[in-house]
């Protein structure tokens, strides 16, 4: 997926806000932000972190500085295993036109040696928001791996995948009753955009998203049916 095509596809679908959240990585965010610069599309920086427990967590931030600070922490907790492109594919870093800059040598699909709680504390301290990703999924989903949301962590919201409706998720997993839900495309290819989470925000910020999932001060999020 090259940055200008990501931007065009999102805009074509009427999507106003996306977040770039690569697996344990942040090196391609700037390229997408630059590609979106003169467009209506808002791009939030973030990461999909894989924790020690093999749970996927969506970590979203307001600024690249915060995101890169988080990357530094994650890097210090990632095993130093070189990528084998024959098995795992290439890990390219590109510029805003999609031109090759470099290959990421270190394997990004492993787990960071950070627990769910440690990850939450780091993201919170940096001013970001942590949302457990595709919690309903068998692979890397919080509910499959840890059974329920750890009670010690004040999780703002949970993300469900495209494979389930919010109603079905709440029926299947009664342990998530108290948590607000969002739904994301978990976009891995240009045909993956979903755009079913409709936010009412005063500005595209983490603070506003937090208010929206908590339904505070007129901010809200609603999951529309998948067309």
């Amino acid at each position: 997926m090259i940055p200008p095509l990501i931007v065009r596809e999102a805009l074509d679908l009427g999507i106003q806000l996306i977040a770039v959240t690569d697996h344990n990585a942040t090196a391609n965010i700037q390229a997408v932000m630059k590609a979106a610069q003169d467009t209506e599309l808002i791009v939030l920086p973030g990461m999909e972190l894989q924790t020690r427990e093999e749970v996927h967590l969506l970590c979203l931030f307001d600024t690249l500085d915060q995101t890169f600070a988080f990357q530094t922490i994650v890097d210090a907790h990632l095993p130093n295993i070189p990528n084998n492109p024959d098995f795992f594919g290439e890990q390219f870093v590109v510029d805003e036109t999609g031109d090759f800059i470099r290959s990421e040598e270190r394997l990004l699909l492993s787990s960071a040696d950070l627990s769910f709680e440690q990850a939450w504390a780091q993201v919170d301290q940096l001013g970001g928001i942590l949302i457990p990703a595709h919690v309903n999924r068998k692979s890397f989903g919080l509910l499959e791996i840890l059974g329920f949301v750890p009670v010690e962590v004040p999780v703002d919201a949970l993300e469900i995948s495209r494979h389930i409706t919010p109603q079905k998720a709440r029926e299947t997993f009664p342990q998530i009753a108290a948590y607000p839900l969002i739904q994301n495309g978990d976009v891995h290819g240009l045909d993956g955009f979903l755009g079913t989470s409709h936010y009412t925000l005063a500005a595209p910020t983490i603070a506003e998203i937090r208010k929206a999932v908590q339904n505070l001060e007129g901010r809200s999020v609603r999951i529309a049916p998948i067309p």
């Binding site: 020690r52 427990e53 627990s115 769910f116 709680e117 509910l143 499959e144 791996i145 840890l146 059974g147 329920f148 750890p150 010690e152």
Partner: peptide, 22 residues
Amino acid sequence: LSCVMSGAAKHSVWVTLQAHSN
């Protein structure tokens, strides 16, 4: 843990590499 919740017998010993507080 979802497997354990539906599969482990009462009073059994559970072997796991998962050390999370859950």
